[in-house]
Amino acid sequence: MGNPMKIRAAVKDGVTEVKILMQHEMETGLRKDADGNLVPACFITEVKAQHNGRTVLEAQFGQSVSKNPYLVFRFKGGVAGDKITISWVDNKGDTRSDETAISA
């Protein structure tokens, strides 16, 4: 299981802004280590965001995304206290899911 994410969600004028900081190596599979061996690819392939169980965002990630990715998105709706759940899956099948409540 991956390391915890940091999620912040706040609603303003009926629009919820969600900020997600993920902890992930995001290895491209193209980089070599100090001994010249390829470092195996390891990167997030899918990110999903749910608002009270309803999917509001699905994203496909790849090798070009940096280590410890940061993602911000907004959606219409949401009230303080609602549950936001973020989950990701990487190419090795590892996964992580964290949640937070929307603040005002």
Partner: peptide, 10 residues
């Protein structure tokens, strides 16, 4: 823009 996304937080 990215100030809320500093991985140093971890």
């Amino acid at each position: 823009m990215i100030s809320d996304g500093n991985p140093a937080d971890f």
